[in-house]
Simulated scan of single mutants.
Amino acid sequence: MNTTTTPRGVRNNNPGNIDRTSVAWQGEDRSATAVARERRFCVFTTPEAGFRALAKTLLTYQRKHGLRTVKEIINRWAPPVENNTAAYAHRVADEVGVGGTEIISLNRPVTLFRLARAIARHENGRLYWDDAVIERGVTEALQ
C-alpha cells in the first residue's frame, strides 16, 4: 500500500480518525514507533479494533451525551471548526437511510453498523474495508 496516497485512517487502522487521548483504547498501538509516526491520531493494531473504538465512541455519544440524531452525532464527531459538518451529516444520514434529524437507536446493531461504515467512508474518501471487518468491530463494541 502506498503510504503517500493511502488515507491516514487506513494507514492507522483508524477508520474514524479518532484523536489519541491519555486513555488507551483496546487494540491501540502506543509504541514509540506508532506515536512518532502519528502524533495526533490513534493507531490501532487491526481495522476491527479501529471500528470497535469508532462504534464505542458513537455509543457513548448516545448513552452518555444524549445525542439521538445523525446531525447531533456528526456535529460532535466532526465539529464545524474543522469540517463542513452540515454536508458531512447529510451524506452520512443518506447512507444510514434516515433523515438528519430523525431519532435513531445505536443499540440496534444494523444502525450502529451503517453509521460506522458511513463515517469511515466519509473520513477516508471511500470505503476501504469489507462489511465483515466493520461488523466484527461493531459487534465487539456492543458486547
Rank of each mutant, 00 (worst) to 15 (best):
R108Q: 07
V133P: 00
P7V: 07
F113A: 07
T5K: 08
N84E: 06
R63N: 10
P15M: 13
A118W: 07
H122M: 12
Q143G: 14
E72N: 09
R117C: 04
T60C: 02
I73L: 12
F41I: 05
T60A: 12
G99I: 00
R121C: 01
V10A: 03
E95T: 02
A53G: 15
S105H: 04
N17R: 06
L59Y: 00
N124I: 01
V98K: 01
A118S: 15
R68M: 09
E102Q: 14
H65I: 08
G97R: 03
H65D: 13
G27V: 10
Q143V: 01
T69Q: 02
R20I: 15
L54N: 11
P7Q: 02
N75F: 12
T6M: 11
M1P: 15
A24C: 10
H122Y: 04
H122F: 06
D29Q: 07
R114V: 00
V98G: 01
N124V: 00
A87E: 12
W25R: 11
I74F: 02
G9V: 10
N75I: 00
K64S: 12
P80D: 04
I73Q: 06
D29I: 14
A36S: 14
F41Q: 10
H65R: 14
A49Q: 05
K56Y: 01
G137W: 09
W129F: 13
T4H: 08
T33I: 14
F44R: 13
V96L: 02
V43Q: 09
I134R: 06
V96H: 05
I18W: 05
N75V: 01
T111A: 05
G137M: 10
R39L: 14
P7G: 11
N83W: 08
N2H: 06
P15A: 12
L54F: 09
G27K: 10
G99Y: 02
Y88M: 06
R68A: 10
V110D: 15
A141F: 02
I119P: 12
